[in-house]
Design a protein around this nucleic acid. Structure first.
Lengths: 162, 162
DNA sequence: ACTGAAACTTAGCCCCGGCTAACTTAAGAC
DNA sequence: GTCTTAAGTTAGCCGGGGCTAAGTTTCAGT
């Protein structure tokens, strides 16, 4: 047997398009969950490109060891992740060379950074301590839709609703 | 030839889930990073116990098929997850029987539910649409610390800061 | 030029959370 | 009482993101 052809298609919707819920009649929770779950694939990617961009800003270049320190994981893990990022067209690299962001990677990085900043500033404005804002925004940023981000931005620019 | 062609299409509209498990009490204050990742396993646990509690509230019992519908995953996946939850002492179950929450599971469920409700209500109050609030709160709830949750609660009870 | 330490790579293993395929059990219709 | 079907189970595979251990490359210093 052996001869089977294994064709695997993997669709990864980008980022924004909310659920659409065409609804097959069922409750929406399922759709909602689908969307929520779908995000995580790229969370790590976003964290990495953000960290890479930071390193480049700070040291001119990003070496794997910077990411090792930043994420507190092993070199092996960083390597694996970088390979995935490269496969996905977000970074380029060569053996023993620094990691570079592609255009797509840069775009994603600044997008993520911007979102992160808005969330963090919003939390602070909410009255949360700087430290908690820093920690929580790390986790929250990946789950904030455009609409919610807009609402937060509005608050930062124009004050509270009502 | 023989064998036929194995055509395997795998559509993954969405992909992943959100993170977080803290027993309660946030994570490492000092190391900002590291927290976000590695938590994933327990986020699923929280989502599941929450869904199980909901099913029990609504239908008296929770069957695996309820979770299959709720999360839009296969029966096999639900089974695996339930086994993990059982291993972790959050639920009890027997072949072909409904899933029951242990004391720990119930505790985690109501905790998660409460957090979820606060986050969702807060987002709505922020001016976000009901639908977006429902979606975003799903992802955000796992990353909200006690402090941030408290700030949101305060807003709901006493209005905006300042 | 050599060498030792730091940076990097590779191989192999884990668990999680998805999936398909194929099977078993439980239950409702008739 | 079958018999069909829904529900549940099991086995096996996959990718993501961790790890350790062991080998390779780079590069400062001397």
């Amino acid at each position: 047997m052996a001869g089977g052809i294994l064709l695997r298609l993997q669709f990864k919707l980008g980022d924004e398009p909310p659920p659409s819920l065409p609804s097959d009649g069922r409750k929406l929770p399922s759709k909602i969950h689908q969307r929520t779950r779908s995000d995580h694939a790229s969370e790590v990617a976003e964290d990495y490109v953000e960290a890479i961009a930071d390193a480049i800003d700070q040291h001119g270049v990003c070496r794997a060891v910077d990411l090792v320190k930043h994420f507190a994981v092993t070199h092996a893990t960083v390597n694996n992740t970088i390979k995935r990022l490269e496969r996905d067209g977000l970074v380029t690299t060569a053996p023993y060379q620094p990691v570079e962001l592609t255009a797509a990677g840069s775009r994603l990085a600044s997008q993520s950074r911007r979102r992160h900043e808005v969330v963090e500033a919003f939390l602070k404005k909410l009255g949360v301590s700087d430290q908690t804002a820093a920690i929580d925004s790390e986790g929250i940023e990946h789950h904030v839709s455009k609409e919610t981000l807009g609402a937060m931005k509005r608050v930062l620019e124009q004050g509270w609703p009502e």
